[in-house]
Amino acid sequence: MTPAPSICLTGTAHFGAHQLFPPVQLEIDAGTWSCLLGPSGCGKTTILRLIAGLETGVDFQGQIRAGDGQPIPGRVAYMAQTDLLLPWLDVLGNVTLGARLRGAPADTAAAKDLIARLGLGPHVHKRPSQLSGGQRQRVALARTLMEDRPVVLLDEPFSALDARRRADMQELAAETLTGRTVLLVTHDPGEAARLGDRVFLMDERGMVEAVPPAVSAIRGADDPDTLAFQGRLLAALRAQSAA
């Protein structure tokens, strides 16, 4: 993996005549977790897609730069709310999908190691339909890690999981994605409070940064400072929607 760059997005987006978000500035530090927290429809997924170089259908005016001046597309791994596993491939096939799609030979041994590391060893030749929701999301994480990209963009990847599996996945992701520049888009204040080295709050009026507790992420779910921070984030979200 090449060194993880910082990323800075500044600009505004319009959808036809409608302004999706006003001028914002998002600074994602190199090698840490930044969380973008906001209600549905505020444009946070659009920001993630803009950074990933994916189709957004909006008119974006501004710039997206990596701190090292190199282009960002090609250095990004992407994980979405649904696991996006291909039903016709087994776990190994899904984890090595990237190589397959680039016409490169797949490193099967490395993929198997990774699958075993995420506790999926016995399932390596199973199809996604034979796995539970939590296992499927772990396969998606393995696929993301297999890409070995310095920038990882996560679009609410844990929101469909139950509370226990979500906490497990958050810890697993925090551990395995260490050293990468991660942007996590979420609507869950608890998730942002646990995982964010920096936390940005967004709504249709713009973006503000919230200052997280001094203890570094990932924070304990029962840590009093984290819980207090979660409370402040929730209050800020509710104040936004009431305004």
Binding site: L54, V76, A80, L84, L86, L101
Partner: peptide, 22 residues
């Protein structure tokens, strides 16, 4: 499903491989 295509594009797939593999 558009998500599969997004995933393929971030993985650097060419349009021909997206067609054939996905």
């Amino acid at each position: 499903p558009p998500g599969w295509l997004d995933l393929g594009r971030t993985m650097g797939a060419s349009p021909a491989r997206l067609l054939w593999r996905i």
